Simulated assay, not measured.
Amino acid sequence: MKAFSIGVIFIWKGATKMATRGTKRFIWGFFMLWVALMAIFTFADLNVSKALYNEEHSRFGWFFEVYGEHPAFLVLFAAGSILFSTVRDARLVKKILIRLISGLFILLSGFSIVFIALNRGYELAGSGVMLICLAVAVLLAALAQWLLMQVPVETLSTYNRAAWAGIVIVFAEIMVVNVLKIFWGRMRFRNMEGDYSQFTSWFLPQGIQENGVTAEAHKSFPSGHSANGWTMMVWMLFMPFASKWRNIMLVIAVAWGLCTSTSRVIMGDHFATDVLTGAFITITCMLLFCKLFKVDIYSDHQTNASVLQKDKNAPYFR
């Protein structure tokens, strides 16, 4: 726990260093809100789950169980599509390399988008369903490339760093969440017996449980659905600064993240602190890798005012 806390502090100090004023406000606003909510739900975790649990009859919970994680795969699909298209005029070796890598992202994410919806929503599986999902992924990829061909390479390439950052953010949050799940060993609410004697606080790791990585009942902390749902915020990186689209996307992302997180408590898969930690992991990864890839979440309006005045619709990445 001490090493984890030190690591978090180090990452957040790094994320704020040399960030724009708008980004710093975003960082500290989020961090203070997260700390306050974690403090509250640390003591209220079990009671909140008892009050909200409604696995059998909640259509809201069902919807976000099926579709809540889709933003992560949509980010991979969009980022891969951008990278695939921007090398259309590149040298042959670079074009082949980038298109092999980005094409893999496109097909894997496109397949996942369709398969998760069919499997979780309608319990469809099997080789036939998988072939259908792959075919749909190919068609979606072809449609995306046709649409992107209408955009000049010069305009599209301004999003390259955001695309690479988006890919790394998604893979990083998935890896961190799934590793923590194994070693934390916290039991899910819906798997507990009637007296809730197996409940443990989030700050007390239980270690690797029997059956190791397959012990699904002990993978409550942190929430993968929440982490993937909050990747909706990564879509801010593909929005221009000047037209207020980033603020609009932020509102949409927060609404989606909150709905996905709440649904996990309703379905009994996670406690409130689990979903808060999932959100924290994703947003921390976003802040860290945006810094590494030199992609600003918000511009400094004082330093960038002249740039924004010249072209109010142009994306700007420092």
Rank of each mutant, 00 (worst) to 15 (best):
I167G: 04
F60C: 04
C290Q: 01
V170Q: 05
I9K: 01
M32D: 04
F31T: 14
Q198W: 04
T277E: 04
L97Y: 14
L52Q: 08
W245T: 14
N178P: 13
F280K: 00
T214I: 06
A253C: 06
M232P: 12
T282Y: 03
A305H: 14
V213F: 07
A15T: 13
S243N: 12
S299A: 14
I113T: 14
V75A: 02
L134H: 08
S226C: 08
M232W: 03
L37I: 09
D274R: 03
S5T: 15
F31S: 09
N54Y: 04
R99E: 02
F293D: 14
L131A: 13
W230F: 14
N119I: 11
A142Y: 11
K95R: 12
D89R: 09
L276F: 04
K291R: 10
L52Y: 05
Q206F: 06
T284F: 03
S157C: 07
T23L: 00
L308H: 12
M38I: 12
E123C: 05
R264P: 07
T16S: 08
R25F: 15
G103P: 13
K181L: 00
G22M: 04
A227D: 10
G278K: 00
G257P: 06
I169N: 01
L288F: 15
L97A: 13
V307S: 07
A44S: 09
A44G: 08
A272Q: 00
G257I: 03
E69M: 05
R59L: 13
E193F: 10
T158F: 01
Q302G: 10
K50T: 12
E193G: 15
S49N: 13
M267T: 12
Y316G: 01
Y159Q: 05
V168W: 01
M232S: 13
F199C: 06
Y196R: 07
V66R: 01
N160I: 10
I167D: 02
A279M: 03
F10M: 03
A217E: 10
F26W: 08
K94R: 11
K94V: 15
P240A: 09
K219F: 09
I101A: 10
R246K: 15
V179Q: 03
A44P: 11
G128T: 13
G103F: 02
V114F: 07
T23V: 07
G22Q: 07
Q209N: 08
